[in-house]
């Protein structure tokens, strides 16, 4: 549970810091997840939003560029999709939907709706394509992620309906549908974090092949090696959420630092 609790603490405290900055001018983390100022000085920007701005034909300022660079390097080193499971507030919504889905046994009664994991890369491509041709930040203008974090900080409006759509989509239509199949930001961070350092490592000697990890994993494909070989989870889609680590009773999965020098031997 410790990873789950840490993730929730990180997710909630980031939003709380933003809210405090907006309401009381607390200068720790100002702005929102699209762009912020850390400690009143360090700029941070969502690199995917900046990419859309650039493609749309906007002149990127130094602040925004440096901010996007910091975030890209940060996630590029840590594990790209750590944003998804450790920062993004939509994760709390979809986790709740998936939890409920498991409890109610919806997956068991449902006919499988086929969706390709690659949809998100098409959505990512479309975001940039539309941004370019319409001169807009195409995804940012409709992003449920932004609607949620912006809403929590600056006022929600009817934003709850969008959050509900995602919740019910994940609950009723497809398991982990939004985060695992559609979200282009997740796709973007998958690419950014392709070679990141912090990785889950599987130890096949300890594995008893109970496959509990594959039940909880929101990106099951990344765990292809479980019960087969000892190696790190090297696919970009892994969000480093550590659910597999927590559920594993045999200590066969753990965080490790990717070692590039030994890469060929693995």
């Amino acid at each position: 549970m410790r990873y789950l609790i840490s993730r929730r603490i990180v997710q909630v405290s980031i939003i709380v810091l933003y809210i405090l900055a907006h309401l009381y001018g607390l200068k720790i983390l100002e702005g929102n997840l699209s762009s912020s100022i850390l400690f009143g000085a360090i700029p941070l920007s969502d690199p995917f939003a900046v990419l859309q701005m650039f493609v749309a034909g906007s002149i990127i300022t130094m602040d925004i560029f440096i901010g996007a660079l910091i975030i890209t390097i940060f996630y590029g080193l840590l594990g790209g999709r750590m944003f998804c499971s450790w920062v993004c507030p939509v994760n709390i919504v979809t986790d709740a939907a998936n939890y409920l889905r498991r409890k109610l046994g919806i997956t068991a009664i449902q006919k499988r709706v086929y969706m390709s994991r690659n949809i998100r890369y098409w959505v990512l491509g479309l975001s940039l394509f539309l941004s370019f041709f319409m001169g807009l930040t195409a995804f940012e203008l409709v992003s449920p992620i932004s609607i949620l974090h912006r809403g929590l900080i600056f006022g929600m409006g009817f934003g709850f309906s969008v959050v509900l759509i995602i919740f019910f989509f994940d609950l009723l239509v497809h398991e982990n549908g939004w985060c695992g199949y559609v979200c282009p930001l997740g796709a973007f961070y998958s690419l950014v974090g392709k070679y990141s350092l912090i990785r889950v490592k599987h130890n096949v000697d300890k594995c008893t092949e109970c496959m509990e990890c594959k039940v909880v994993c929101p990106e099951k494909e990344v765990l292809f090696m479980v019960g087969k070989s000892s190696q790190i989870v090297n696919m970009g889609a892994c969000t480093n959420c550590a659910r597999c680590i927590e559920v594993c009773a045999d200590d066969a999965l753990n965080f490790s630092i990717r070692n590039f020098s030994k890469k060929n031997k693995e």
Binding site: A21, H22, G25, E30, G31, N32, S34, S35, S36, I37, S45, D46, A49, V50, M53, I64, T137, E140, S146, I147, R150, G151, I153, F154, G155, M156, G157, F158, G159, S161, V162
Partner: peptide, 21 residues
């Protein structure tokens, strides 16, 4: 970039960030 820093900076609550609706 829709960060809302201008909204936070406004001392009169004049500025708002457009929400759905």
């Amino acid at each position: 970039i829709k960060c809302g820093l201008c909204v936070s900076a406004c001392p009169y609550d004049t500025l708002k960030l457009a929400a759905p609706g």
